[in-house]
């Protein structure tokens, strides 16, 4: 799921085109004299090439979201045409449901902890791996492996290891730390931290890779100049590297926040829909699935989807306006043309 969000920073490429095409109707640049096709021929080409993609995109990406907005106003079991119009009743129920409040709160905790836990680890690892050393490309690849493995494998594996009689507790006992054994999954005081541990394990490699890419964007001359001026390694990292990593870190944080708001797979696989709410790891998405489709209340499920969409969109827009506006124009803020 996260991969889709990875790319959003690049989305800022748009303003250039909007300006370039400037509203004039010329279909071809004058610099191509040999092209003497009719306007209709070109329109046909455009239709032929872009049509299928637009059609599929509208039908399966945009239409469902619009439909969710419509179905959200009905009490509807998912069969036939919805007739039982209930107005804003579904939304009122969502706003008043303590289970939803809990799920939303868990999402907020996960968003914050993902940033707080992953950023220092990822920055530290990236600085470490950015040093010239033997085997660095192998290390980079190995750190990235958990990110490539499917959520189901990660969830199944960790789920087995974290059982009260699982490998993690046994390992702790074997090395003499038996006092630290826990009921990692079902103890509500710990479960959310267990989840965070797994999330960090799976996604920190991605943060490291992004930050390494950002580090490579910093000109070497800056480090050399600082070294000539007598700056120590740590001074260079603090005064030069970290400030210049700002844009990279802000983009990574954006991706992490959006991903955390949509979190579903790992929670659903390890905790399932029932244990998730008693163990305190339910998220908006697991709430949506268990109270929507699994309960047969499709109208309600769609309303939850709309609420999730609005929250995610609101967070994304606010983040772009407040945090990312400081970064250079055209990086990510392009869409909100200022």
């Amino acid at each position: 799921m996260t991969d889709r969000e990875l790319i959003s920073p690049a989305a800022g490429g748009s303003p250039a085109i909007i300006e370039a095409d400037g509203g004039s109707a010329r279909a071809l640049p004058p610099s191509r004299p040999s092209r003497r096709k009719s306007l209709w021929g070109i329109r046909l080409e455009i239709l032929l090439l872009a049509g299928p993609a637009v059609l599929v995109f509208l039908a399966f990406v945009i239409l469902p979201v619009v439909m969710a907005g419509y179905y959200g106003f009905f009490r509807w079991q998912g069969y036939g045409i919805p007739t039982d119009f209930v107005g804003l009743q579904n939304y009122l129920t969502i706003i008043q449901d303590p289970d939803f409040h809990e799920a939303l709160w868990h999402n907020i905790v996960i968003v914050v902890l993902s940033l707080v836990l992953q950023a220092p680890i990822a920055i530290g690892l990236a600085l470490l791996l950015n040093r010239r050393m033997k085997g660095q490309s192998v290390i980079r690849v190995l750190i990235f492996v958990p990110y490539v493995i499917s959520e189901v494998v990660v969830g199944t594996g960790w789920g087995l290891m974290l059982q009260s009689r699982g490998a993690v507790n046994a390992f702790l006992e074997n090395i003499g730390l038996g006092a630290f054994t826990q009921d990692w999954i079902s103890n509500p005081d710990i479960a959310i931290w267990t989840l965070m541990g797994i999330l960090v394990w799976k996604y920190v490699g991605f943060a490291v890779i992004i930050i390494l890419a950002g580090l490579q964007g910093i000109p070497n001359e800056l480090f050399e100049a600082a070294a000539i001026d007598g700056a120590s390694y740590w001074q260079i990292q603090r005064r030069i590297t970290l400030p210049l990593l700002g844009p990279t870190l802000r983009i990574w944080a954006f991706l992490s926040i959006i991903g955390a708001l949509q979190l579903f797979d790992l929670v659903y696989i390890i905790w399932g829909q029932y244990i998730a709410s008693t163990a305190g790891t339910s998220t908006m998405a697991t709430y949506m699935v268990s109270n929507g489709r699994n309960a047969g209340n499709f109208g309600y499920g769609n309303a939850v989807a709309v609420v999730m969409f609005i929250i995610s969109l609101g967070v994304a827009l606010a983040y772009q306006r407040i945090v990312l506006r400081r970064d250079t124009a055209g990086a990510l803020t392009g869409r909100s043309k200022r």
């Binding site: 239409l63 979201v65 439909m67 959006i258 579903f264 929507g292 769609n302 939850v304 999730m308 969409f309």
Partner: peptide
Amino acid sequence: FPLTVAITP
């Protein structure tokens, strides 16, 4: 428009 949001419809 992430898949998670669109899944029910």
